[in-house]
C-alpha cells in the first residue's frame, strides 16, 4: 500500500492539527483511518463540505488547529463559507483529492475537477499541488505553515495520477 497518506498524517501531527473534518473520498481513506484511530485528534465527519470551514473556524477560535479533507467535487460546496474564512483571516488547511483529471472514468467529475483550483483561488486560497508521493510530507508541512502562520486559506490539491484511478470494486 502506498504510504504517502501516512506522510501527510505525520505532517499534520507535526503541525499540531487536532481536528480533522472530512467528507470521505477513496483517496483519503487511509488518512481518515489514521485520524479516527488517533486519540489526540477529533475526527469530524461532515454531511457537506460547507460545514468544514465553519467547524475549523470554531476550532481556531478555541485554540485548536484543524484540517479539512475532501475531494474536488466538494470544493463547489464551500465558496460562501470561504468568504468568512477570508474576511476573518481564519487559517484553513484543505487537502483536496482531485477527480476529473488524470484517467477519470466519470465525465460528471470533469467540471468540478477543472473548476476546483480557480474557484479556490477566487476565494483567496493559495494552491499547492502534490503529484509526487515523495513530496507528501514536505508539501503538507509547508502548506500547514503557510495556513497557520499566515492566517490564510491554503489547499493542497492531490493529483489523481498519484491517487490512482478510482476502482469501484476495490
Amino acid at each position: 500500500m502506498a504510504d504517502w497518506p501516512d506522510r501527510i498524517f505525520e505532517a499534520l501531527q507535526g503541525a499540531d492539527v487536532r481536528q480533522i473534518a472530512y467528507v470521505p473520498d477513496a483517496g483519503h481513506k487511509r488518512l481518515i483511518e489514521r485520524a479516527r484511530a488517533d486519540g489526540d485528534m477529533h475526527a469530524v465527519s461532515l454531511t457537506t463540505e460547507m460545514e468544514g470551514p465553519a467547524v475549523l473556524a470554531g476550532a481556531w477560535l478555541g485554540g485548536q488547529r484543524g484540517a479539512l479533507l475532501m475531494q474536488s467535487s466538494g470544493v463547489g460546496n464551500c465558496p460562501n463559507m470561504l468568504s468568512t474564512t477570508q474576511t476573518c483571516r481564519f487559517p484553513l488547511l484543505m487537502l483536496v483529492t482531485m477527480r476529473g483529471e488524470f484517467g477519470e472514468f466519470n465525465p460528471w467529475q470533469l467540471s468540478m475537477g477543472q473548476a476546483a483550483a480557480p474557484m479556490l483561488e477566487m476565494m483567496g486560497t493559495r494552491i499547492f499541488r502534490l503529484d509526487d508521493a515523495d513530496d507528501a510530507g514536505t508539501v503538507t508541512a509547508a502548506a500547514a505553515a503557510m495556513a497557520f502562520e499566515g492566517q490564510m486559506s491554503v489547499a493542497v490539491l492531490i493529483g489523481q495520477r498519484l491517487i490512482g484511478t478510482k476502482n469501484f470494486r476495490k
Partner: peptide, 14 residues
C-alpha cells in the same frame, strides 16, 4: 448555515 458547525469546532476545542 454555519453557526452550529462553528459552535461544534469551538466546543470540541474547549
Amino acid at each position: 448555515g454555519g453557526a452550529a458547525a462553528m459552535g461544534l469546532g469551538l466546543a470540541l476545542a474547549q
